[in-house]
Design a protein around this nucleic acid. Sequence first.
RNA 1: GGGCGCGUAGCUCAGCGGGAGAGCGCUCGCCUUACAAGCGAGUGGUCGCAGGUUCGAUCCCUGCCGCGCCCA
Length: 871
Amino acid sequence: MTEEGRNQHDSDGREQPVADRSVPGRSVPQRPTLDGVEARWSAVWQEQETYRFDRSADRARVYAIDTPPPTVSGSLHVGHVFSYTHTDVIARYQRMRGREVFYPMGFDDNGLPTERRVQNYFGIRCDPSLPYDPDLTPPAKPGKEQVPVSRRNFVELCERLTIEDEKVYEQLWRRLGLSVDWSMTYATIDARSRAVAQRAFLRNLERGEAYLAEAPTLWDVSFRTAVAQAELEDRERPGAYHSLAFARADGGGDVVVETTRPELLAACVALVAHPDDERYQPLFGSTVRTPLFDVEVPVRAHRLADPEKGSGIAMICTFGDLTDVTWWRELRLPTRAVIGRDGRLLPDPPEAIVSAAGRARYAELAGRTVHAARERIVELLREAGALLGDPRPISHPVKFYEKGDRPLEIVTTRQWYIRNGGRDEALRAQLRARGSELHWYPPHMRVRYENWVDGLTGDWLISRQRFFGVPFPVWYPLDDAGVPRYDRPIVPDHAALPVDPSSDTAPGFSEDQRGVPGGFAADPDVMDTWATSSLTPQIAAGWGSDDDLFARVFPMDLRPQAHEIIRTWLFSTVLRSHAEFGTLPWTNTAISGWILDPDRKKMSKSKGNVVTPLDLLEQHGSDAVRYWAASGRPGTDTTFDVGQMKIGRRLAIKLLNASRFALGLGAVEDAGTVGEPLDRALLATLAEVVDSASTALDNYDYTRALELTESFFWRFCDDYVELVKGRAYGSFGEPGAASARATLAVALSTVLALFAPFLPFVTEEVWSWWKPGSVHRSRWPEAGELRKIADSGDPRLLEAVSTALTAIRRAKSEAKVSMKAAVASARVSGDADLVGLVEAVAADLRSAGSITALTFDRGAGELAVDVVLAG
RNA sequence: GGGCGCGUAGCUCAGCGGGAGAGCGCUCGCCUUACAAGCGAGUGGUCGCAGGUUCGAUCCCUGCCGCGCCCA
């Protein structure tokens, strides 16, 4: 308990700054206050580099955290404050435990949200076909027409704007007290991240884990980009079954198909029913003709056809949904695309439509949106008598891009994929095993991961037809006709990364060969943001650019994150690490819950119930907000509760006052003088608290650790301090007083250390009054040392004397007299052992209760006190 | 439709096989010289419902109801 300052962990003898004696403290203030502690101490921590990562530490001593990089184009909300506090508590605990904590902050500025913000802010748009202009000056303010700029210019402007956003974030995080090493910050679009993302991709490519394929792809027609399985969500939407009559080719009558997408009729390549469906078995192998377009299509059997759905026989179109893709692939059907990338029907009909009437009807639909085409084709079907009855409205799930507001279509495009086990059972099993290897807090979150891995239906589509992202480091040679040879991609040397193929020249070519026959062309796409975010451990740890650092921090110890992105961020990070290193990227993951508003709904902007974090911190104080945040266990959704913050603030103020009082009594750390039974019992109790709190924190149960510490602290204040007051003043002689003062000091410094991860500001404030260095670089308390000082003190004694004290207070309370009212006589009775314990501290109890005559009656049963108040 | 989690005092939540708890709220007191943004005491619950296992269930099992999330 006597070691000092932040030099304690310096086993390497490195010099570290000692707290500036002129800056706060070194004496106990008359009227302690929480005002200004955030500004004061965050400045000191910054100046003294209190949380600097010592990169000379070896892996065994390092505790490395893969911090979630928040999206900078949005804004921080209460949920961020909540979950980042959890991580910070762990970081501070591990640091005090002697681990060198690698705790960088990242910013996620890569991707669509930033792209849109930058477009609007500067009034520009990205045109990847333009050359880079090193002297580009964006419009002072957005004009009517968006100015087209090259991708590299666009990315530079994105970076410029996000840097400003990041400053705001950093200020808030500092005010919240995150013990991040701000010298190690990264952004997901910065050069280091681009280089890591490109390098990882190229290595995936070399190993055959990444590949280019032309395939039916889920496509957002608003953003005009492909999207991945992980970005899908189902939304319930109204629709309608339309009954369409297909004529049997053999003239045997009509087959009635019910469809919700009649506008895709021109894309119909077959009908399909379940092989066991007796209604349609006779038709398998025969053909029918589509209404309106008069195209002959086969009737096929497939297990995925649902006899319960509609009429039990469906039309297969290329492509209406993912089942169509499966049928198309497994039944080897032709492709007749009708939907373009803009979500409109293609100008030309599929070649299969040969009749003049059919082509004329298609011309009525060409160029229309899906919605308009549907309305028109219903009219055409009705006129042709092919629509039976009226459409029957239904409600059904429709696939959307999670950030989009129009239903996804499926178009055939060339895209990059990374193998993720969706088409490979061996890989799937390996990734499942990684999930079991990982320690999950709370454990049940593992199931989310397993469900996702088990449900993967295809490889990970990582290319996006957007601009603000990491470009694929790939060019293609152009043949003599100027057509790209996609089968012969050109890649850069790893040392050249990051590259932008739209402005950097392909190796072996000169820039004037760009886009000309025999020359080269850049891959126009960028990577999905998750393709970069899945590499945050590699980015933060300096993979490929700082191998020394990488060796000291990877694999990391902790990934903290929210549960809704287990399928995206957590899974993809595991995947990339598994592919590259054959290991997990971290050993533990702590999954945070959400903040619910008082109506038990998830807090969100759309509901207008979001409180801005800065207001909260200013109103209640950072320690108080952190106190509330720490009440939310890992994985548990937590109610936004101002009441809890008020309790936290009260606790912080209590710490100030109790500390001032204890120090005012002359608290001095001198283990040798502790001898009184009550003092030894207190420290023995505290040793148990230290044990339990440490175990709880080791298991990421910071809430339990806080509860234990808090409850000890209140007992310390309410009972111990009251009992020992008189003795500490010297009423019973110097040895007793010295014992009390030493105990107060030991208990206080221990309690401050236990609270430090939760309430970093107030604990640092109090620490500065009487101890050198930072509490945050002090050593985590050792139960063993406390027990040594306690010298077989008995925790039950504290319990018993508290019970007795409560009984005496009850008597006064019921008599409605002051607590300092005199007690003429009190008789403590009950279990002999317990009475004996109380008797050992008779002097303290008599003093605290103002008791004239205190007697003891050793018998049996519960501890009781008969009280006779004076006159 | 499948999976996971949750339903305990007015509120927010612990507990998870043998005493039903904490804080807040509420009530009644106390200017006790660390703190009146304080202190003391007290009040308050057929632990969602119904079965089952057990000597014994808030805690284990089954079913149901309600809420939330993830996935179809």
